[in-house]
Design a protein around this nucleic acid. Sequence first.
DNA 1: TTTAATATGTCAACCGGTTAACATATTTTT
DNA 2: AAAAATATGTTAACCGGTTGACATATTAAA
Lengths: 325, 325
Amino acid sequence: MATLKDVAREAGLTVGTVSRVLNNRGYISDKAREKVDAAMKKLHYQPNEVARSLSKSSSNTIGLIVPHIRHPYFMEIISRLEYEAYQKGYRILLCNSRNVQEKEKEYIDICTSNKVAGIILCSGTVPVEVFDKIGIPVVTIERFLDNGMAAVECDNRQGGVLAAEKLIACGCRHLLHVGNIGGVFMPADMRTEGFREVCEREHVPFEELLTEEIQYDSMMYGDMIEKALLKYPKTDGLFVNSDVIAAQTLQTCRKLHISVPEQLKVIGFDDVFLATLTTPQLTTIHQPIKEMAEIAMNLMHDSVSGKVVPKRTVLPVRLVERETT
Amino acid sequence: MATLKDVAREAGLTVGTVSRVLNNRGYISDKAREKVDAAMKKLHYQPNEVARSLSKSSSNTIGLIVPHIRHPYFMEIISRLEYEAYQKGYRILLCNSRNVQEKEKEYIDICTSNKVAGIILCSGTVPVEVFDKIGIPVVTIERFLDNGMAAVECDNRQGGVLAAEKLIACGCRHLLHVGNIGGVFMPADMRTEGFREVCEREHVPFEELLTEEIQYDSMMYGDMIEKALLKYPKTDGLFVNSDVIAAQTLQTCRKLHISVPEQLKVIGFDDVFLATLTTPQLTTIHQPIKEMAEIAMNLMHDSVSGKVVPKRTVLPVRLVERETT
DNA sequence: TTTAATATGTCAACCGGTTAACATATTTTT
DNA sequence: AAAAATATGTTAACCGGTTGACATATTAAA
């Protein structure tokens, strides 16, 4: 593998000049540039990014920590972020915390050991303090850390509001909400708030089922939903915290001979690809995942460049009506 | 950030000894080990993996090149590989070629520039020769490169056989197969072979629709399926190359008022999570994705360690019968 | 013509860990 | 007591690119 020195020798220049060409630093003549380009081409020169990272003590890799890969929502996030990263010349070091604190911590260490330029965090098992001293930019998506890091989220509360209003407008009078609960506060918890507020304002009775999502890895929520529907048999409107759960709800309803949307109306969250593949297709709260990823990566880029970035960016959600309402 | 030198000073030893402890090289006493451990703990020492990679000219990162992230099949592959990599102390550099040759080539360069230990390749747009001189192990999944690299695949031909046999056993007499076609030969092409052989042997008429999957990114196959069903209205048995297409087929059938499985039986491929979330649930050919990922990462590990590895590993598939047949 | 801007060379330290050669000291074995 | 094994120190080169200080040469502007 050819090195910078080889290129310099081939071009009849010195490493200093070649490095200047590569990094666009100082004065360089067109002639020099051409000679360097020719030499690089001839030797099939590929800069050693590892050496570069070492001398700069920072790479152009971004650590992406998610709690889950095998989940449509995070899959979309990952896909979009990878694209945005690529556009900006960053690489993605993929880290799956599996929602386990130990693993998340370990991955944070791995990221810093590997001198990533920054971390995009979608996982939320680790307390804020851990991030205080890592010394690199952290941008969160749907995970609010109240310590000055840039956070990108959707208007979760509004999502809960839209869902409740829609169900009530559809004539539902016995609502049920399946939401999250965990050790750490998550923006998604606000969905419950919004939902609750509307129900109380409209005097519509509702139940809340807050789960710890133990089934995080397997994504099997069928049993949980079945128990909930049997426990609250009068339920005629259901708002769940993800399309995956909503899709499994439809399967459960089929099993229990509950017709959707006639007997039970269902609203999911996320609006991922899956929402159009169920029968009936899912009515859901649309998260602008593409935009969230785009903004997150822009924030990361700006942070890495030393710019001041907004602490919190909240994007709008909207109700996408399909066939379950 | 503390360095090796700091640790050595703190432990009252020299870098040589500390490095020996870290890499388990040469003679080390328990006392020295303890002192080093204590010093590392006290200074919160994290080895600089970049420096390590530079001096070893190889990192413990594996480049993972997929043609698609936003696709359930690759999502599963990625998820499993990430897990296996983690278990073995490797990191994943995620590369999405988007099925574009230029991007795939660029990502291969990025991988070598970053001195990855090896590449796991699930993408297939680049001709074999490109891999001949990159000098690091390459393991492929569902992508056979006939140049001595380790390949992991499922028994695609058998998948086609099972699908055809099942459809015929169900009484279908007008079969249709939607498969892939591309510039480069892919193992998935063998599904068509198997399917064709059975149909010919059993004298059951069949049509083949081989697409280039232009919709690779958007994953919208609805129109294609609709046109196919309108072009071959007598079709009563359909075998498609992925569960995603199968799921969209069900939506199309609903639109065209074709009842599944009564009027049309459908068999997908992959057996991803999605297959259980459609209505009716998908009968499909199960790929042992977990095992494939496990084996692929083992092969990678062995290759990196300089071992001789089997050139080709073919895993069995099986028909999972659900509700579309 | 003098000054200033542009362009490149030279040299060397640096990023942080790896590794090999060689010396030396302490233990253990023969 | 001598030989061998174990343990650590010293030193320095190396991985490959970055960067800054300083010198020098060529052009261009004043």
